[in-house]
Design a protein around this nucleic acid. Structure first.
Lengths: 232, 232
DNA sequence: GTCGCCAGGATTGTTGACAATCTTGTTGGA
DNA sequence: TCCAACAAGATTGTCAACAATCCTGGCGAC
């Protein structure tokens, strides 16, 4: 009884019962919830609760949780359950170090000039800008993801692009602290613009610098927040 | 009936029915089978067959296959099943390009001198050498894996080490062509020795060069073999 | 009053059966 | 003889019930 109550207490938001997306890739749906902060780090993921919430069977939730565990977004303890993974500051730093290395490598491979790539990025960026201006965190997240996917896929090495995406996913849990922040989103939008500009100028050095600078803010915000919380 | 027969025909080896490892991490077991060539690229992985073979329930096989799919070792088609992934030459090249980048990055991070690391590597290398000399492919594979895990874990960034391991796993399917070759194993042994030597000398440049050279052979062998088969 | 043990309940893990889907082989007709 | 629809079998996907495990809270002994 008490266990049940505890699980209820730790529920993300008061009225979270129903939910629009019935089917689709459940893991991706849950991932988005984490990014948007509806499911917060340290929060327990009770299989039956999620099944009821998303209107699917427990079995489907189970598989999604396994998938998220492989990605590194949730942590599972045998016979105890899964929680949204709480990254320590050192983890965030280390993951971002790898991201920098991977993205820098990819940036060296992108063929320049890249007229076609620029066109596609501009289209995506329009969506992103619109989402930022209308404070639509979910749409901004999706467009942002598309932007980086498209950019790094242009390196011509799909395995590298996938690794970059995978490492970005690892820190999705920490992104909930910036995903809804208008100032941060506006900054990201500006940086995307400048990256497109660098592509257009064929300035690879500048592109690599921008990629690196683009990674910094969310990392620093999260680490600062952890420090405030005394490294909980 | 015919489908069943076909599945039997494509069975890896004539007498594969029983099997020693009953439990343990099933995905790792299957992975080893792939590396050792008992399960070959393009071979179908029928859930019930594997369940019977390893003495586990189908459900466990299912999860293992999902895990292997995420790693990239097997390919799954909905409602049709999974097969050991057949990498194209271009895939192999691309994966190895990322491996080079990741391992080079890790090599820059390993603190030198590394007395403790050297000691551990020497212990592992003894096992590897013994396995190579007695033509024990399975033991050689395990020791080899340990060697590289230990080496790159020393970079102090576990997420990077995991990425390196994960990319090594992606090409495990292609390793079956070298895993049992005494000449190749002997060469690997020598290279490990030299790497330890470089560590002892604190020569980071040399270590990085050796890591890169160590990757080449298996890639080239596989690509050459694919070329012979006309890029099947 | 505190500590350790025991019972109840919640949650995860496992199993077997059933449903859906695809593949293959066959039959009937042009 | 060739093609298309059909049927059987094999295989994967889904489900609901059961078993195992762990946490919580209460009760009794020291």
């Amino acid at each position: 009884m008490a266990a049940r109550a505890a699980s209820r207490e730790s529920a993300p938001t008061p009225g979270l019962a129903p939910h629009p997306p019935p089917s689709r890739n459940l893991a991706a749906v849950i991932e988005e919830e984490i990014v948007l902060g509806w499911l917060q780090p340290r929060e327990r993921l009770v299989e039956e609760d999620l099944a009821a919430r998303y209107g699917v069977k427990r079995h489907a939730v189970r598989e999604a949780i396994f998938a998220l565990e492989r990605i590194g977004l949730v942590e599972r303890v045998p016979n105890k359950g899964a929680v949204v993974r709480m990254l320590r500051a050192v983890d965030v730093e280390q993951i971002y170090a790898v991201r920098e290395a991977l993205e820098a490598f990819a940036a060296t491979l992108i063929p320049l000039p890249a007229a076609d790539l620029i066109a596609r990025l501009e289209t995506i960026q329009e969506r992103h800008s619109a989402a930022v201006e209308s404070d639509d965190a979910r749409a901004a997240f999706r467009a942002n993801m598309d932007f980086h996917d498209t950019l790094f896929s242009a390196c011509g090495n799909p395995h590298l692009a996938e690794a970059i995406k995978s490492f970005a996913q690892k820190v999705h849990g920490v992104r909930s602290y910036t995903a809804g922040d208008p100032a941060y989103l506006a900054r990201a939008r500006e940086e995307h613009m400048v990256m497109i500009e660098a592509l257009r100028a064929g300035d690879r050095e500048r592109l690599m610098t921008l990629c690196k600078q683009h990674l910094g803010p969310s990392r620093d915000i999260y680490i600062a927040m952890l420090a405030r919380r005394q490294g909980r």
